[in-house]
Design a protein around this nucleic acid. Structure first.
Lengths: 353, 353
DNA sequence: GTGAAAGCGCTAACAT
DNA sequence: ATGTTAGCGCTTTCAC
């Protein structure tokens, strides 16, 4: 019952523990004859041998573990996919993820760090539920770390975040492409990477089509159903034929309000959302065209960055390797921007004149 | 950099490693004077010492790790709370959770088991995204395991599942309590713990109010928005004044269809949902009264069961401890039913005559 | 190609 | 009360 050791296997197979170890681990430095190898493996199988990860890591001095700390992704309705992506990519590299959700609790976070450090993680992915700037906890310095869906303004750590500007661009573009010229934007009033990024994207899209940016066309609303619901009149007053909503929830609220006024989507108003929060967007009537957040990719790229960082020696400007010097000028990392994909559904109608 | 060992600390503090170990771990068997203890701890702090979990576990022979395998909870829009509950409860007991989401992939699952076994987990929580009967993988036998949100019909493993019957009961009761007498039930047509359980609860509630069960009052619909949307006419035809929907998504679809017919909730029809999928239920117009799934509790009780199981010696019918005999008759576990809480919002209207 | 043996960092007897 | 030391199970030189 889990008590079978390598020694047991070696003994039963009539070889030394060293040989057994090599036979099982496909060691490259030593060439074990195929038949010894097979024999050892069979014995191991028969005995129900499972290597003891602790002993292995202790001996090797490394763990194959990657820490993943989040402030609530696991509970968030859609961001579990970040973890999924991270897990998949970790697995692909023979690593596995140690996930702790701190739920934003500082005590838990403290403990989580200790835990990860004690478990010799090869690095830590620190992720936020909502895309935002953070001041990274000092513990992150103790190991290689990368930020996911959040970033450090001082660039001390590499970060992977969604490209909000491109996302806002794409969303607006969808409407413009369909011929609309009066496009409103229901945006979240509080400043955040999402609100400022998407607004910027909206403006860029307009500009690209030779349209002037009119502040009167952007209406403030909290980023949820209630916000969208309450924004209906303001939107209507702009005389827009199409609206880009800050997110799918906002769009859902707007749908409701519109329906109450006897207006129909997309006949009376074309709508595009953001987030591609499936439970909502895929099932509204009509289904909502939207722009998705690249959660899965965020996770994948997070661990990928971590892994490459880990290997990469410091390199000087001529491309020569340099020794890492304690007090050398620290890297200043530029966040890696991940594109937000458009998801076409049925809430946009072609507009002619 | 993470290279500080207990020995280093001991040396720096001028004590033996044993003393250092005791000083740091609050060992109960040995009484270390306050000042030595403090000294050791200060040195540890100063040196940035972090105990090596692998060495510790190796030496102790146990890991403080609990495995959590899920077939997709992490991605599911709402079941991350199961993990959260499990994690919290684990933490409360000084254990931590090793989470792997297999996404239903058998290969990953196989690997996940190996991984957990190798990491000497003290037990495994095996959980399903949707409440269902499963045939548990044999690997579960290799350690103490408990099933969460799923169960083994043969009762080989303890299981923790939502009480669907009580949930269906409560949902119906909410409507009955409000005076409704013609209550329809939009149910999922495929047999599942949820569909049969909730139907049973519906019938019990009716019976408790002296109402006859009329099969004509239950209409089939897939458990999503489209199902609810399409069920509207059938529901209306029953002449019901209130409907219990299989879940919130169904309710959302029904809302849409009703609105298109100029009908209003709850004035023309009272509705109660199921799942309390917040993104939807809390933000519909009007907000949906529903019955929640006890996800968090499922997680908590899952690890709690695991932990108590682990300690509990086998006990015979007289309550005497007995040695665990390999081929003794296995326990037959009855699933632990966790209640589903009602969530009152605005979709029910009192009905008078 | 294979075995012997020295650790990896920590805990827990056992000594003192 | 504190130090010594023998492992925990595995990897990995280093001999043979």
């Amino acid at each position: 019952m889990g008590k079978v050791t390598l020694q047991d296997v070696a003994k039963a197979a009539g070889v030394s523990t060293a040989t057994a170890s090599w036979a099982i681990n496909d060691n490259k430095n030593v060439r074990i004859p195929e038949n010894t190898r097979r024999k050892v493996r069979n014995v191991a199988e028969r005995l129900g041998y499972h290597s003891n990860a602790f002993a292995r890591s202790l001996a090797r001095g490394k763990s194959d573990l990657i820490g993943f700390i989040s402030d609530g992704v696991a509970t968030s309705p859609f961001a579990g996919r970040v973890i999924q992506g991270a897990q998949d990519e970790a697995w692909r590299n023979g690593k596995i993820l140690l996930v702790v959700d701190t739920d934003g609790n500082a005590t838990i976070e403290r403990k989580a760090f200790s835990f990860m450090l004690e478990h010799q993680v090869e690095g830590i992915i620190y992720s936020s539920w909502v895309h935002r700037a953070i001041t990274p906890p000092d513990e992150l310095e103790r190991t290689t770390s990368v930020l996911v869906n959040c970033f450090d303004e001082s660039g001390r750590f590499p970060a992977v975040v969604p490209n909000e500007v491109q996302g806002g661009q794409s969303a607006t573009e969808l409407l413009l492409q369909a011929g609309h010229r009066r496009v409103a934007f229901v945006n979240e009033p509080t400043a955040s990477p999402a609100s400022v990024g998407r607004l910027e994207g909206y403006r860029q899209a307009l500009a690209a089509h030779g349209l002037a940016y009119d502040p009167a066309m952007v209406v403030d609303a909290t980023a949820d159903q209630e916000g969208g619901y309450g924004a209906a009149d303001a939107v209507l007053k702009t005389g827009a034929t199409a609206v880009f909503c800050h997110n799918d929830r906002t769009a859902m609220g707007l749908y409701d309000a519109l329906r109450e006024r006897g207006l129909r989507v997309p006949d009376d108003l074309s709508i595009v959302g953001f987030d591609n929060q499936e439970v909502i967007s895929a099932h509204l009537h009509p289904a909502l065209t939207t722009v998705g957040l690249p959660q899965y990719d965020l996770g994948v790229l997070g661990v990928r960055s971590l892994l490459t960082l880990d290997k990469a020696p410091d390199v000087d400007y001529d491309g020569n390797e340099t020794d890492r010097v304690e007090d050398s000028k620290p890297h200043c990392f530029e966040p890696l921007l991940v594109n937000c994909p458009s998801v076409m559904r049925d809430s946009i109608r072609t507009y002619r004149g």
